Computed example of a mutant assay.
Amino acid sequence: MARIAFTPNLRRHLDCPAVEGAAATVREALDLAFAANPRLRGYLLDEHGRLRKHVTIFVNDAAVADRSALSDPLAPDDEVFVFQALSGG
């Protein structure tokens, strides 16, 4: 089963523990997490369902390629990591 995990910084602001489940794409993995906490959707996705600019998702050690549909495929043993991107000057 794929596992989706969130950084401690995100967990500090939202209740989003790691989730495991059957998911064929990054979108399906996120939907598992959104089912547990619907507020998380608005924090990670914009009004069009695309990944917000301040959020980065990795599957294992590679950044997702499809930030719009989140259609990157997942293998059953993949780990999905959701980060809040940092910026500054």
Rank of each mutant, 00 (worst) to 15 (best):
V55A: 02
D46P: 13
A69E: 15
D46R: 15
N60L: 09
G49R: 05
A22K: 10
R3Y: 08
R27T: 02
R52S: 07
A24T: 11
R67H: 13
R3V: 09
H54M: 11
Y43A: 14
C16T: 04
V55K: 00
A62Y: 10
L51K: 04
L44I: 14
A5C: 15
G21K: 03
R39M: 15
A18P: 10
L14A: 10
L45M: 11
L14V: 12
F58D: 03
G89C: 05
D15C: 12
L86A: 13
F58K: 07
R50D: 15
L44S: 08
A62G: 09
L14P: 02
Y43E: 15
D72L: 03
R39C: 12
S68N: 14
A36P: 08
D61L: 11
R11M: 09
T7K: 03
D77R: 12
V26Y: 00
A63G: 06
F34I: 02
I57K: 01
V55M: 05
L14C: 10
L86Y: 09
D61Y: 08
L32H: 05
R39G: 13
R11T: 07
A62F: 09
K53H: 13
H48V: 10
R3I: 10
L32P: 02
A22H: 06
L40Y: 11
N37F: 12
F58A: 07
R12L: 15
V80H: 00
A75T: 06
N9D: 15
L40H: 10
Q84L: 08
P17F: 12
L10H: 07
A5G: 14
A36M: 14
L86F: 13
D15H: 14
R41E: 13
D77V: 11
R27W: 00
H48M: 14
P73A: 09
D46I: 15
N60W: 04
R11P: 01
P17D: 14
R52T: 04
A5L: 15
P38V: 10
L14K: 09
D66K: 03
A35K: 14
N9M: 15
D77G: 10
T7F: 09
V59W: 00
S68W: 12
L45R: 07
F58E: 05
T25L: 06
L32F: 06
E20K: 06
P38H: 09
E20S: 10
L10E: 07
A75K: 08
P17K: 13
E28W: 04
I57M: 04
R39F: 13
Q84E: 12
Q84D: 04
E47N: 11
E20H: 06
P76N: 08
L86T: 11
A22T: 11
E20A: 08
P8K: 12
A22P: 04
G89K: 06
L70G: 05
R67F: 13
C16P: 02
A33L: 00
R11G: 06
L51Y: 05
T25A: 05
D31P: 00
G88M: 07
L10R: 06
N60M: 06
I4Q: 01
F34M: 04
E79F: 02
G21H: 02
L44H: 08
A33I: 01
L10T: 05
I57W: 00
D66P: 02
